[in-house]
Simulated scan of single mutants.
Amino acid sequence: MQENTNPIDETLQDTQADTLAEPVEAEGDDRVAALEAELAELKDQFLRTRAEMENLRRRSAEEVMNAQKYAINKFAQELLAVKDSLEMALADQSGQFDALKFGVDLTLKQLASAFEKAQIVELNPVGEKLDPHKHQAISAEPSDAEPNTVVRVMQKGYLVAERVLRPAMVVVSKGQE
């Protein structure tokens, strides 16, 4: 089977294709321009969002650094009053032992108040079971208490916000011999 090719039909088809292609091409050019404009807008939004996120990350890092750097300010201000009181006690030349003892007692109360405000809690575990996370046993001695019970505190321990700052140094019971 041989196809009939008529030059007039071919010309007519070519003309129709060209006529149809022109609006499609014009429509396509408009569509491409619209897509390029949308792409440019999205790219601009992306770059702005990226810059904003980078600034936010940088500001957050600065805030964390400042929080770490200056976290002690409040506690340090509380300790200044304690230091002032101790300096006054050392400068006292009156020789009145009772007045000096009273001043030291007030200074200790100032320090305890500063510790309380900073969430520093004293560990004095006499009578408690040995907790290796909070206590450091330095010796054991015979006692009526149950074995591994704290019978004496050699040095108090401290917690900061329920975290061990310094374990208590304790003597524990061995039980009866």
Rank of each mutant, 00 (worst) to 15 (best):
Q68N: 14
E146Q: 15
V82W: 03
M1N: 12
V150R: 05
A51R: 02
V64Q: 13
A61D: 15
N124V: 09
I8M: 01
D131A: 13
I138L: 10
G103C: 08
F115G: 10
E38V: 06
M169I: 13
L12Q: 04
A137N: 08
I8H: 06
T5A: 03
E146C: 04
L165N: 10
K83S: 11
L123V: 13
A67K: 12
A17D: 11
Q16R: 06
V170P: 07
V170N: 11
E36A: 07
L12K: 02
L159T: 13
L159I: 08
P132T: 14
D92A: 00
D44K: 12
E52W: 01
T149E: 01
A91N: 15
T11M: 00
Q77L: 09
R57C: 00
D14Y: 00
L106W: 07
S60C: 03
P142E: 14
A161F: 06
N148F: 09
A26Y: 05
E62R: 04
R163I: 09
Q176L: 14
E3L: 11
A21V: 05
A99Q: 14
F46M: 06
D105C: 08
A99C: 01
G127C: 05
Q77N: 14
V172M: 07
V121N: 07
K156D: 06
L79F: 01
E62I: 03
F97P: 03
G28I: 04
K74W: 05
K174D: 15
L86G: 00
E3S: 09
S60L: 13
G103I: 04
A91V: 08
S143A: 15
L56M: 10
F102V: 10
N66L: 04
V164F: 02
Q155L: 03
L80I: 12
